[in-house]
Computed example of a mutant assay.
Amino acid sequence: MLREALSNILKFHNYLQSRTDARVRDYPLMQSPVQMTTILMAYVVFSVYIGPRLMANRKPFRLNTVMIIYNLSMVLLNAYIVYEFLMSGWATTFTWRCDLIDPSSSPQALRMIRVAWLFYFSKFIELLDTVFFVLRKKQNQITFLHVFHHSFMPWTWWWGITLTPAGGMGSFHAMVNATVHVIMYFYYGLSAAGPRFQKYLWWKKYMTAIQLIQFVLVSIHISQYYFMEKCDYQVPLWIHLIWMYGIFFFLLFSNFWVQAYIKGKRLPATEDKLKLNGSASEPITVVANGKHLGRERENGKVPYYTNGKIFLGKVKEI
């Protein structure tokens, strides 16, 4: 029975290799799904189990300079990916409707293949987002949505560019995603730059709104396929999966939005308020360690909170 299972796995592996587009077969991490699946499984295990345990009795690393460089690099990389998608068809020859897979070896087709692979590879670079969270002991940021999104996206894209490297209308969601990541990593870069840039981060909660808009745009664009009289897209399965992807992640991010900004579980610190007997609230000031200096009136005195301890009058730094 074990021999038969191994034989079936080998047959499936050989089938995948035969179906892999020859134009993308020699790119890194494209020889088989084993390599990328192993990396992503190691990522999940590190993020959820190994990493937090290694850091349990260690102080968090201060990685501000590294993170500024990383986030700026990701802004530039994703901007380049958007530009290449535009020049590979979306701003030149595509109709934005039923754009087919290009099976040729024309310069434009090969350019689309290169940027499709680069987008796929960028998802492995983005795994560093979680590594930084672990090293900085920001485990509350490593949610199910975060880990699932970072691992599921590159895994599915391997299958996508294996079958459709010059994906026509199937590449639209990648271009939109890269555009969103230009904005996202720009925000992260400002955030890592220190307290003097906090005043420019008032739009934090709109990041989730931008993500939601992304999935709406992707779903609307790909839904055209179901209403056209004729669209001979070569791999309809890819269309169906993109549509399901857009709807599924829209629901996941919508749930995050409800939890964060309607139920208030992850409201930005600068917007938190203390409600005092129905009267106007007083703002909470953010301090460098991520906690708050709260204020409320009590017997005519104003207690201040810092590092979880309370001192009357002036703030006593610990």
Score class of each variant (00 low, 15 high):
4 E>K: 09
118 L>F: 06
223 S>Y: 11
190 L>C: 15
216 V>M: 10
60 P>D: 02
195 P>W: 12
29 L>G: 00
217 L>T: 10
177 N>F: 00
158 W>N: 09
285 T>K: 12
205 K>L: 08
65 T>M: 11
10 L>V: 10
85 F>S: 04
310 I>Y: 05
202 W>K: 08
290 G>M: 00
271 E>A: 06
240 H>W: 04
57 N>E: 02
49 Y>M: 13
259 Q>S: 11
45 V>M: 02
281 S>W: 10
267 L>A: 11
98 C>F: 09
241 L>N: 07
42 A>C: 12
291 K>A: 07
118 L>E: 08
132 F>Q: 00
264 G>A: 11
217 L>P: 13
113 I>C: 12
272 D>L: 13
80 Y>H: 10
62 R>A: 12
45 V>H: 05
194 G>Y: 14
18 S>H: 15
20 T>A: 07
15 Y>E: 05
144 F>E: 03
250 F>P: 15
46 F>V: 02
191 S>L: 15
123 K>R: 02
305 Y>R: 04
64 N>I: 00
23 R>S: 07
5 A>V: 13
245 Y>T: 06
233 Y>E: 02
90 W>R: 02
263 K>D: 10
173 H>W: 11
12 F>K: 07
225 Y>N: 05
318 I>C: 13
12 F>T: 13
42 A>D: 08
271 E>K: 14
176 V>E: 08
71 N>A: 15
136 R>T: 04
51 G>S: 07
20 T>P: 12
309 K>H: 05
229 E>L: 04
93 T>K: 03
306 T>C: 02
95 T>Q: 06
281 S>A: 13
274 L>M: 15
75 V>G: 14
155 W>V: 03
112 M>N: 04
105 S>L: 04
159 W>V: 05
54 L>Y: 05
51 G>F: 14
230 K>M: 02
142 I>T: 01
241 L>T: 07
89 G>L: 01
9 I>G: 01
41 M>V: 06
36 M>F: 04
291 K>R: 01
299 N>H: 12
51 G>L: 01
81 I>V: 15
296 E>D: 06
256 F>T: 13
303 P>S: 01
136 R>S: 02
171 S>L: 10
290 G>I: 01
189 G>A: 09
262 I>T: 13
193 A>M: 13
10 L>I: 07
130 T>W: 01
154 P>M: 02
124 F>C: 00
194 G>E: 11
66 V>G: 00
76 L>A: 15
17 Q>N: 13
282 E>W: 14
192 A>H: 13
172 F>T: 10
35 Q>H: 01
175 M>R: 08
114 R>F: 12
14 N>I: 10
168 G>F: 09
208 T>H: 11
150 H>Y: 03
63 L>S: 04
231 C>M: 08
240 H>A: 08
6 L>A: 07
138 K>T: 01
239 I>Q: 03
198 Q>R: 14
129 D>Y: 03
